[in-house]
């Protein structure tokens, strides 16, 4: 079963899609694909069969998303907490992942046709080395594509991601690339694994559970959350349409809340810069401190903000380079082997 299923929508599905597209559409949708094991129990099949069917459903869902002009999808494939499951099941899931990512490499042509870029978010060092290598190869080979994006969260939890972002910033401070006062909400967002994606507009969780289970906690603060009772392997085009309808109903209020948040964020940044400038002026020009009128103060502030931005950009460039080379090196190692 391939990563993107080739099947056109039926007439009635196309019609519905076009009606939905007349309204505001989510650009980025995140899925918690829950219910594979319950599905297997219900159908009296092996647990592994449930996971396999879950993957097939993902391929189908990606096709629907493309039909609906949704260009970015993020899925929760494997949580760090899932390592607690039985060894048999964890091994089975690792094997399935390896198989699917290898399959992806054979499907280059198809992925190129659709321009699919695959990213894997999470602490990959927790995975077996052979899986890390296959993942790296898949990521590197689709890196240049930019028509649509699939982010697979693997060995991921949101708290781990946030703590890791803080660690990266602390590393920047250690290396002298950043000052501790440069740490801000927007900088933290850019140090997350998901730094290259906009925040999801819509998060869908299947199987009737009503919690986030440590998934994209930071990124979904102002996203539309839709909890649906259907089990993931039974997910249908109509379930997806229903979720999008919910998104459209919440759209205006969410937009308003997001704007308010953005305003607050800008104010906080300004306040932080002001404090830093005041500190600097205290330290340096004690003599001409009195002479600092509003005009020169404003100038100082602008200069400071420009300097800060330069530091932040430099640091982010280094960070991105480090992350890219992790994948390139691993993929290279795999090619040699």
């Amino acid at each position: 079963m391939s990563w993107i299923r080739e099947r056109e929508l039926s007439l009635i599905e196309r019609l519905t899609a076009n009606i939905l597209k007349a309204g505001p559409m989510p650009k980025h949708v995140a899925f918690i694909m829950d219910g594979n094991r319950r599905y297997a129990r219900k159908r009296h099949v092996e647990r592994q069969e449930g996971h396999t069917q879950g993957f097939d459903k993902l391929a189908e869902t990606l096709r629907w998303c493309l039909n609906l002009d949704i260009r970015e999808v993020t899925v929760y494939a494997f949580s760090i907490e899932n390592f607690k499951r039985s060894k048999e099941e964890v091994d089975g899931l690792m094997e399935l992942a390896k198989q699917k990512f290898s399959r992806l490499l054979e499907e280059q042509e198809n992925l190129e046709k659709h321009g699919v870029c695959i990213r894997v978010l999470g602490d990959l060092t927790l995975l077996p080395l052979d899986l890390q290598e296959v993942i790296a190869k898949a990521v590197v080979s689709t890196r240049k594509h930019n028509n649509c994006f699939l982010n697979v969260c693997f060995a991921y939890t949101s708290r781990h991601e946030i703590a890791n972002a803080v660690k990266e910033m602390a590393w920047g401070v250690e290396e002298g690339l950043l000052k501790s006062s440069d740490v801000s909400e927007s900088l933290l967002s850019k140090c997350l694994y998901s730094s290259s994606s906009p925040d999801p507009d819509l998060l869908i969780r299947t199987s009737g559970e009503v919690r986030l289970s440590d998934f994209l906690l930071w990124q979904t603060s102002y996203s539309c959350l839709v909890f649906q009772s259907v089990l993931w392997p039974e997910y249908s085009f109509w379930n997806l349409c229903e979720a999008i309808l919910q998104y459209q109903l919440s759209y205006l209020s969410l937009q308003k809340a997001r704007d308010l948040h953005r305003e607050q964020q800008a104010l906080q940044q300004l306040e932080a810069d002001r404090n830093c400038v005041a500190d600097l002026m205290m330290h340096h020009g004690k003599g001409n401190g009195k002479a600092a009128d509003t005009h020169s103060r404003q100038e100082h502030l602008l200069n400071y903000a420009a300097d800060r931005e330069e530091r932040v950009q430099g640091f982010l460039g280094t960070l991105q380079h480090r992350r890219d080379s992790y994948f390139t090196e691993l993929a290279g190692k795999a090619a040699l082997a």
Partner: peptide, 18 residues
């Protein structure tokens, strides 16, 4: 009617039921 957490304690709602 808005289906969102609207910025409610992102760190702390890891296992929270909504």
């Amino acid at each position: 009617p808005v289906e969102s957490t609207l910025g409610f304690l992102p760190w702390h709602i890891r296992l929270t039921e909504f």
